[in-house]
């Protein structure tokens, strides 16, 4: 089936089999190999992409279902605005040693992007719960939590709202 969708801001048309997962389509047909397959049954989160801005498992979605939708992969995040052209979440993961082998990283970066878009100052508990659908076997997550905090700071600074003191941000919620 020939489908068209928007991937990382560009319209693409691609022929896929009905049974081809969105993950396989993105990886094999569009060369977006930052979409990683860690389990293919929806648990590990390595294949996370944003579908119309919401995180989804691309292993549990058929490519044909993405027709007419907007898909963002980790390759589409760097917008040139941040340090070295990177998205603040990418910058923060690098700055905080939030990755080791890097296999889970694209999924975690995208999940973090969604979280911070919804809540610019999440609590520690919220971060722990939100990331629990993305398995990382290397880091023990501690430095990932630091990276999420750092990314939130960077994004708040970038959006012009001066980074509020941590306590104050929570008090307003």
């Amino acid at each position: 089936m020939r489908i068209s969708m928007e991937v990382n801001g560009r319209g693409v048309e691609v022929d896929v089999e009905d049974r081809t997962s969105l993950a396989d389509c993105l990886r094999d047909r569009l060369g977006l190999t930052g979409v990683h397959l860690g389990c293919e049954h929806g648990v590990c989160g390595a294949c996370t992409v944003l579908l119309d801005g919401s995180s989804v498992r691309s292993c549990l979605l058929f490519a044909v279902q993405a027709a007419g939708h907007r898909v963002t992969t980790v390759e589409g995040l760097a917008d040139g605005a941040g340090q070295g052209g990177l998205h603040p979440v990418q910058t923060a993961f690098m700055a905080c040693h939030g990755l080791q082998c890097g296999f889970c990283t694209p999924g975690l970066v995208l999940t973090t992007c969604e979280l911070l878009a919804e809540d610019p100052a999440p609590t520690a508990e919220e971060v722990r719960a939100r990331l629990s659908g993305n398995l990382c076997r290397c880091t023990g997550y501690v430095k990932i939590f630091e990276a999420v905090d750092r990314a939130a700071e960077l994004m708040r600074a970038r959006s012009g709202t001066a980074a509020a003191p941590a306590g104050a941000a929570e008090d307003t919620r």
């Binding site: 579908l51 995180s55 989804v56 969604e114 629990s132 659908g133």
Partner: peptide, 9 residues
């Protein structure tokens, strides 16, 4: 229920 990406879909 599962995790956010699961609940999103």
């Amino acid at each position: 229920i599962g995790h956010v990406a699961i609940r999103n879909r």
